[in-house]
Design a protein around this nucleic acid. Structure first.
Length: 894
DNA sequence: GCAAGGTC
């Protein structure tokens, strides 16, 4: 008799652990609490490939680990935000996940095998590696295996456990890359925006909730805001135009009637419309040219996935997506509906749907319909929407309850919606009889259509959908003639597109790959929480002044790729190249970091534009105005050693000349004059001398030129330039280049660390080594060097071209901006401006979103020389979203 | 005080 192997099985959430244990053990698993509240243990014996096993099944609760910067970079003023592109990052287990970690380690110590049952998607693969890391720390000898399953049904799970494989490292690395990109961009731009704007304006007077708002940036939240602002600009850019159309109405003596639509739709030229109309008036007899009558079917709704449930709940129940998800979560926890976060919109054929239907036959509201399905009279197998996340079924009721009296009304309505929707999806399609009529008057053609509902079927249980209409059509015959009751030339006006509804937003986000089914609602809610957008009484979204100013600011800077909706798609496409093994994680990261760092540098250099945009809507604080006015005129002499902004030489009328970074308040670097090699140390204390809330700046000098360092500390106010202390002290040991000198001496570390980084680059490791050189050269009036350094990046002329292009396109400024020619001139629709933007969007969009598109062909190597994955490389440009080149050589700027 | 993604 073989001794059983001890096997630790880990699922992504308890519900899966429970289901798989039940399926594999034939419902005989013994459950036991663990030290982690939401992750109990299930024990049962099993046999894997003839080998007896003692199975212990447990779960985590999503990711175990979080990515973050090291402690020294977490303080917002500890470094310039641009440093966050190169700062080290760490994966850590946050405090609230410690019990999960303990549970895994306790079990791992007693087991020989670890079987990973995490969801079969990229995030699941990444969590699998987190679990492996934690378990291996407790038991290095663990044998690691991965169960891949396509449905939670017994046969599939049994197959899966007998054919265990290995976790997919590429998929996991793709997630690592995404996390790192999101963190670096998010943190750097959030700090940039917040530090730049937070203190400058009277937010509350401008309608914001908070006095000092957090102005966050994220690669999902900002493109979402971009969608809202873009629509606002479309609306504002719309210029109403008149159009004309011929209106025909016919009423029989019996009272049957219909109106006809003109084949030409609308005509924007009054003269032409009049000529065509007069033709009709001259020969007004209408002749029926065609009668097409046939039976049509209206299919029931697809089984519900998360996003479709959100959209339906918004439309039919008038419930915001975020609220709906909370209630759905509750219903799931209480066992009334299945797992609410799923992409699946098709039922597994093995699923016993009839049993689920039977559960509802006693309901007073929809029980009768359920009975008719159960009897087979109404039964029709649910359609398949073609999506399957391989982990969850579509959302459906799991238990009937008539005892929902205590529930809040919204929860009741949601449960009812899930039940009715499920029953509808198991019902026969509705049957109608449609008649399409074509009529001719003189040279012009007209159509009308009638629809009579013959069998309601699924519509009986689903009251939210209206079908049918115009069923009082006169009984036309081909070649029949009649005299129209009314024949008129009517005038209409084009309307701007409507504001976005939450449903529109979800659709747009889905189309562009912004967020996942589980996070889309959060990103929308975040717009409201951050004060970037409002939702009006009709639940339509419009940007707040702050939201619009942010987008307009980046637009004006020529950095629209930072907010346009394809941003996420571009990131997703590139990391999916990692997941498929076509590019190395490091290469994609390097490319992304380089690109976004360069965008950050542009943004920091043009920060004034952002301030200007915000100043259109919000009043600045007096002190900030005073600060701006009080700053003396300086002369650019190079680039700041700590950030991308120009370093300025200031010569106050009284007092000592000094050199300071122009990037305040993001960077308050002040360096020594005349040597200009010193590192500043900034402490944010209020100035005791001047009336404004200006910080006191303490800074250190270091005379690198001397063999023994010479150090000084001085405290002064940047606003009034008043010194508080001035003391010098020497120190004894010279340090080799590349070691942070300030850090070792009790001064705060940032300055010294930056010095260390800069030296490292100078040693040739990094392509931006020139910066350190410029810093050294910019002392003693070496102006030429500094100026050359400031103009780095795209050639100036090209940048100017791009900016002016963008300005021409920016419709939010002039009020009545043009709508073409991108939109193709006279679009002939009610929403003519939309065509223009859609055209622009389509071109700008990554052929990317979620890796559905084929990989772009061809071989190319990044300018950094890193981008060689497994020989053939591919990906899309972070700037324009197109394949074939990298963003630092993007030919499609703007 | 930053992101987005899992999940309770």
């Amino acid at each position: 008799m073989q001794r059983p192997i001890q096997v630790l099985n880990v699922a992504e959430k308890n519900s899966i652990a429970k289901q798989v244990s039940a399926a594999l053990s034939n419902n005989s698993a013994r459950s036991q609490r663990s030290c982690s509240t939401y992750n109990p243990l299930f024990y049962f014996p099993y046999n894997i490939n003839g080998q007896p096993c003692d199975m212990v099944f447990t779960s985590v609760a999503g990711h175990l680990m979080e990515l973050d910067f090291t402690d020294d970079m977490k303080k917002w003023r500890s470094c310039s935000p641009v440093d966050l592109y190169g700062a080290p990052v760490l994966k850590k287990i946050p405090q609230d996940k410690k019990p999960v970690e303990r549970n895994l380690q306790e079990q791992a110590r007693q087991c020989q095998w670890l079987v990973l049952w995490l969801d079969c998607d990229r995030e699941g693969e990444n969590i699998a590696f987190e679990v492996v890391e934690v378990c291996r720390r407790a038991n290095p000898r663990l044998v690691i295996k991965r169960a891949k399953f396509s449905a939670l049904v017994r046969r599939e799970l049994e197959r899966s456990v007998q054919t265990l494989g290995l976790p997919d490292e590429n998929a996991s690395k793709a997630v690592d890359a995404r996390q790192e990109i999101d963190l670096r961009i998010g943190a750097s731009f959030t700090r940039f925006q917040t530090l730049l704007l937070q203190e400058k304006f009277k937010w509350q007077e401008g309608g914001l909730q908070e006095e000092r708002p957090l102005i966050s940036y994220g690669p999902c939240q900002i493109p979402t805001l971009g969608l809202i602002v873009q629509r606002q600009w479309e609306i504002r850019a719309h210029v109403s135009e008149p159009f004309w159309y011929i209106y025909v109405m016919y009423r029989t003596p019996e009272g049957q009637q219909c109106t006809f639509s003109w084949r030409r739709g609308h005509i924007y030229d009054h003269a032409i419309a009049t000529v065509l109309y007069e033709n009709c008036v001259d020969e007004p007899t209408a002749r029926i040219a065609k009668v097409d009558a046939r039976q049509v079917l209206r299919q029931p709704p697809l089984p519900l996935a998360t996003l479709s449930l959100q959209k339906e709940a918004i439309t039919h129940l008038r419930m915001p997506g975020e609220r709906m998800m909370k209630l759905a979560e509750e219903l799931y926890q209480e066992g009334f509906i299945s797992y609410p976060r799923t992409e699946t919109d098709c039922f597994d054929p093995a699923y016993d749907l009839k049993a689920l239907v039977r559960d509802h036959t006693q309901d007073p509201r929809w029980g009768q319909h359920a009975q008719r399905i159960d009897s087979g009279e109404m039964w029709h197998p649910p359609r398949s929407g073609g999506h399957d996340d391989k982990a969850h079924p579509p959302i459906h009721p799991t238990r009937w309850t008539g005892a929902s009296e205590g529930w809040p009304p919204e929860k009741k309505r949601l449960y009812e919606f899930v039940c009715r929707s499920f029953l509808a999806s198991c019902s026969k399609p509705a049957v109608g009889f449609e008649t399409q009529i074509e009529a001719a008057i003189a040279t012009e053609a007209f159509t009308t259509r009638g629809l009579m509902v013959m069998e309601k079927n699924w519509l009986e249980v689903y009251p939210w959908f209206k079908w049918g209409g115009n069923d009082n059509l006169p009984p036309f015959q081909v070649n029949q003639t009649f005299m129209p009751t009314e024949l008129l030339l009517k005038e209409g006006m084009t309307h701007p597109p409507p504001k976005l509804s939450e449903r529109d937003l979800i659709n747009a986000m889905e189309r562009h790959g912004i967020g996942t089914d589980a996070t889309v609602a959060d990103h929308i809610q975040k717009q409201l929480d951050r004060g970037y957008a409002f939702k009006d009484a009709s639940a339509l979204f419009s940007p707040s002044p702050l939201g619009e100013a942010l987008i307009a600011g980046y637009h004006k800077m020529g950095l629209s790729n930072l907010w346009q909706p394809n941003l996420r798609g571009v990131i997703e496409f590139n990391i999916s190249e990692v997941a498929h093994g076509r590019r190395a994680k490091e290469a994609v990261l390097e490319e992304a970091v380089q690109h976004f760092r360069s965008d950050y540098i542009s943004a920091a250099q043009k920060q004034g534009m952002m301030v200007e945009e915000v100043a259109r809507f919000f009043d600045p604080w007096g002190a900030a105005e005073a600060q701006q006015q009080a700053l003396p005129q300086g002369q650019a002499i190079g680039q700041c050693p700590a950030c991308p902004m120009p370093l300025m030489l200031y010569k106050p009328e009284q007092g000592t000349p000094y050199v300071a970074c122009s990037g305040a308040p993001l960077c308050r670097q002040i360096v020594c004059f005349p040597c200009a090699t010193a590192q500043a140390d900034v402490s944010a204390q209020p100035c005791t001398e001047c009336p404004g809330n200006i910080s006191k700046v303490a800074f250190k000098f270091r005379r690198a030129a001397l063999p023994l360092g010479y150090d000084a500390e001085m405290t002064c106010c940047v606003l009034c330039d008043r010194r508080f202390e001035d003391l010098c002290r020497s120190y004894g040991t010279a340090r080799p280049p590349g070691h942070g000198q300030a850090r070792g001496r009790g001064g705060r570390g940032a300055g010294g660390q930056r010095a260390g980084q800069a030296e490292g680059r100078a040693a040739g490791r990094h392509p931006t080594a020139g910066r350190a050189a410029a810093r050294r050269g910019s002392g003693r009036g070496s102006h030429g060097n500094g100026a050359a350094e400031m103009g780095r990046g795209a050639p100036r002329s090209r940048r100017r071209d791009r900016d002016s292009d963008d300005d021409a396109d920016n419709p939010h400024r002039g009020g009545r901006a043009r709508t073409g020619p991108r939109g193709g001139g006279r679009a002939g629709t009610q929403h003519r401006a939309r065509g223009a933007w859609n055209g622009a969007r389509a071109r700008g969009r990554a052929d990317a979103g979620r890796g559905r598109q084929p990989a772009p062909g061809g071989r190319f190597v990044s300018a950094t020389g890193h981008a060689v994955g497994n020989g053939a490389t591919s990906g899309v440009c972070f700037k324009c979203g197109q394949p074939g080149h990298w963003s630092n050589a993007c030919p499609n700027q703007g």
